[in-house]
Structures are given as C-alpha cells and as structure tokens.
C-alpha cells in the first residue's frame, strides 16, 4: 500500500512540475536542427531557381522537404516529444493536425469542385 501511494505521488509530481523543469534542449540539438534546416531550405530554393527538374516533380519535392523541415523544427527547436507536459502537448498537436488536415483538404476539395462546376464565364484561370 505504502509503495503504491509513493509511486502515485511520483507520477503526480511529474505532471505538476514548475516551469523551470522544461527541457531547453542541448547545444548539439540546436546545431543539428539548424544544419538540417539550412539544407532543407537551400534545396527547395535551388530546385526552383535553377529549374533542374520539371515543375510537377519540383512541386512534389519541395512540399515533401517543407513537411520534413516542419518536423525538424518541431523536434529540435520546439523540443516536441511525447513526454512534455505529461503527453498533453503532443495530444494538442495531434488534435490540431487532424483539424488542419480536415479543414485544408476539405476546403481545397470543395472549392475545386465548385470552380469546376461553375457556369463558364469569361476567361477563367485554371484552378491551382
């Protein structure tokens, strides 16, 4: 019984620590994140400015690289992990990602159909 209470108290403490116990990351984390970001920023700019690949492939690559860079920033600059705040920041992040994906893909999808089904007016630019 007494060990149970003790274990519970420890778990509890973990969730209610002071602001001071937050991870600020290490120097190597910061430099790894920065180096990765430099590469992941330079690559899409170079691809678009030089036009090495054709447009379709370039678009796919730069979107993928941007997604990767967002993850790098989240992990190395914002120090996201599954443990901070007892897992609640990760929960909030996952919830936000779900809402963002639904809202973004839904808006683009619905509006794309709306544009396609519109009565043809004067010259219309193609939907993105």
């Amino acid at each position: 019984m007494s060990t149970d209470v003790h274990a519970e108290a420890q778990v509890h403490d973990h969730g209610h620590g002071t602001a001071g116990d937050h991870s600020h990351g290490t120097r190597s984390d910061l430099w790894i994140g920065f180096a990765a970001s430099v590469v992941l920023t330079a690559l899409p700019f170079w691809l678009v400015m030089s036009g090495t690949l054709d447009k379709q492939v370039t678009a796919l690559v730069i979107m993928a690289v941007a997604a990767l860079q967002v993850v790098v920033h989240m992990v190395y600059f914002l120090h996201m992990n599954t443990r901070s705040e007892g897992g609640w920041s990760m929960m909030a992040l996952i919830f936000t990602i779900i809402v963002v994906v639904i809202a973004l893909s839904g808006s683009l999808w619905v509006m794309q159909h709306l544009t396609t089904n519109m009565m043809p007016m004067h010259e219309m630019s193609p939907a993105p």
Binding site: H16, G17, T18, A19, H22, S84, E85, W88, S89, A92
Partner: peptide, 9 residues
Amino acid sequence: HAEGHSTML
C-alpha cells in the same frame, strides 16, 4: 500548484 506550472501547456 507552483506559480506558472500550467503556463507552458
């Protein structure tokens, strides 16, 4: 509750 314990979240 320590002061500011929930600020980060």
